[in-house]
């Protein structure tokens, strides 16, 4: 819903992750694979989690979700084995409350 006051907006969490894949995978297929995994695991009723792929460079990325759905997204990310037909190993690096902190803490070398 648009125009909600900040106190009523749902809180978000940013998950930094790393994908080890056989071939190069693109942002779109990863986002789709994650959404489909959420849907297949939790169903239409409980899959809503504010999921959004914020950044992905082919290996590392950040995914955004609601704080309440953090565990669900982590489970979906853990159970992901294929992205667009490519076998992958998704590894989560950490969780943060802001995208800035997430980048600084987990993605900057």
């Amino acid at each position: 819903m648009k125009g909600l006051p900040p106190s009523l907006r749902s809180r978000k969490r940013y998950i930094a992750f790393r994908i080890i894949a056989e071939k190069k995978i693109d942002e779109r297929s990863l986002s789709r694979a994650l959404s489909e995994k959420m849907l297949s695991l939790f169903g239409e009723c409980f899959a809503a989690s504010g999921l959004r792929l914020e950044a992905f460079d082919g290996e590392r990325g950040i995914v955004r979700c609601y704080r309440e759905a953090l565990d669900k997204v982590m489970v979906a990310l853990t159970l992901m084995t294929h992205v667009g037909g490519v076998r992958v190993i998704p590894l989560t690096l950490g969780v943060s409350g802001t995208i800035k902190r997430c980048k600084r803490k987990y993605l900057e070398v």
Partner: peptide, 14 residues
């Protein structure tokens, strides 16, 4: 196999 490896955090959260 290597494709079934996950981080400690992932295993614990699951």
């Amino acid at each position: 196999n290597q494709y079934e490896l996950r981080t400690r955090k992932q295993v614990e959260t699951f």
